[in-house]
Structure formats: structure tokens, C-alpha cells
Amino acid sequence: MAYKDLTVLIVDDFLTMRRIVRKILRDLNFEDIIEAEDGSAALDVLKRTRVDLIVSDWNMPRMTGLELLKEVRSTDSIKDIPFLMVTAESQKENIVEAVKARVSNYIVKPFTAAILEEKLAKILAR
């Protein structure tokens, strides 16, 4: 399936970061991009809309990316959605936690379109 046919949900509390991720996704020919500014907003979107890929920040107020991931994985209707966690170099060590919570893959900030593409290839191959 081509990227342009996939619906991506970006979750980040920082507007500029959402813009940046959106820009990179656009560079990869994604067209259908939804944004949510925190975990609970993301869950709202997921209830209403069919999403093919979640790109979520780890560090967010109220609900963290990890909490969102756990919520997604434990909700039957959305538990199989590929989940890409965005993290910072300094927080990378925590990723094992996310792996245990069945994250699809993770990406370290700052990243390029090429790196994102590489990760997406790994995720979407399965």
C-alpha cells in the first residue's frame, strides 16, 4: 500500500513538533495526516476514525506516549495499529519499556525523512 493511502495520526503536545513531523511525512508522500495534542485527544480520534499508523511523542502531559500505547494495545478495535514512538536520545533507555508494551518501533529525535522511511518500512513489512 502506498504511503499516500494511509491515515497517520501524529500525537505531540508541542505544535511545532507536530508541524515538523507532518512536514517530514509529507516529504514521504503521506497525504492523510491527523494531529492530536495529547493521549486522550488521540484516543478520541481513534474512536472516530480508522487510522493506519500512529506516530506519538513519549513525553506529554496528562497521558504519556507509553500510556497511550498501552491503552491502544489493550483496546480490541485498535490494538493492531502500528505504533511508532518518538523519543529523545536521552530517554532512549526507556524504550525497552515501550517494547514490552508492544510498540512497533521507535525513532529518536531529531530524525530525517530517510530514517523515518527506514523505520516505516520495518513496521509496515509485518
Binding site: 503536545d13 508541542f14 513538533m17 515538523i20 513525553n59 529523545a88 529525535k109
Partner: peptide, 18 residues
């Protein structure tokens, strides 16, 4: 502490990109 940590974290993240 978290509320102070987070903005620095986010600013750092974006600054890394641009």
C-alpha cells in the same frame, strides 16, 4: 517538576530538528 521538564524537552526536540 514534570511540567517544567516537558517544555525544555520539547524545545530541545524541535531545536534539534531546525
Amino acid at each position: 517538576i514534570n511540567a517544567v521538564f516537558r517544555p525544555f524537552h520539547s524545545i530541545k526536540g524541535v531545536a534539534g530538528f531546525i
